[in-house]
Amino acid sequence: MKMLEIKNLHATIDGKEILKGIDLTVNAGEVHAIMGPNGAGKSTLSNVLAGRDGYEITQGEILYKGENLIDLEPEERAQRGVFLAFQYPVEIPGVSNIYLLKAALNAVRKYQGLDELDAIDFLTLVRSKMELVKMDEQFLHRSVNEGFSGGEKKRNEILQMALLEPALAILDETDSGLDIDALRIVSEGVNALRDTDRSMIMITHYQRLLDYIVPDYVHVLSNGRIVKSGDKDLAKELERSGYSWIHDAPEGVGA
């Protein structure tokens, strides 16, 4: 089954074109890595997929399970199973983590026509998911991401992903700001969530993350286009030769 199809996607911010014709197909159960230098358009792509304000889509389409995503509000995408693990998870003072988790889970369940979980079932569920990312229960009662270290914020993102069980997860620079131990914990969490019904897109600058979460496909994004696609060996090649070579690549090479 095709989970996501991006066709000739062009997007601008403040009138400046950042995405200049992206084509990408992700099937159910696949893990894709999108790599590229700074300014290639990686974060724009993840924001456009999640529906952030401020981007204008000038051409192309995004189909998720065959449905056009572009006209949906961010929360409608989330309720349908599109999850973005943020590069910089935002702090929300005064709102406890557990409150957000519960509200988010119930929003998704409501869309699915399920009842809200009662407090006990919810807590049992959350606890089981917290083991996955080795998070202490005290994090549940602190304000969302407030005063969390970089690693704690990223683990919190994966916890939310584990709880919401999305069909399509976009991991935006999930490895940035992580030391090696935190990277291992986060990766184990992500790997545990790999499933034949779940697709993932990992957006990253560095190959490092891909040692821990091995992708099925690797794409190189440069100047708003995917300039090269391959399997996991492409990432290794990038690590050896850096990104400079891609500027020399002729237009239109790749996927």
Binding site: E73, V90, V95, A103, A104, A107
Partner: peptide, 21 residues
Amino acid sequence: FYCKQRGLDTEDAVSMIVNGF
């Protein structure tokens, strides 16, 4: 945006953030 990405509609997201404030 963060709250909406987690599936909350605008109304709930605002109410949550304001209550936190």
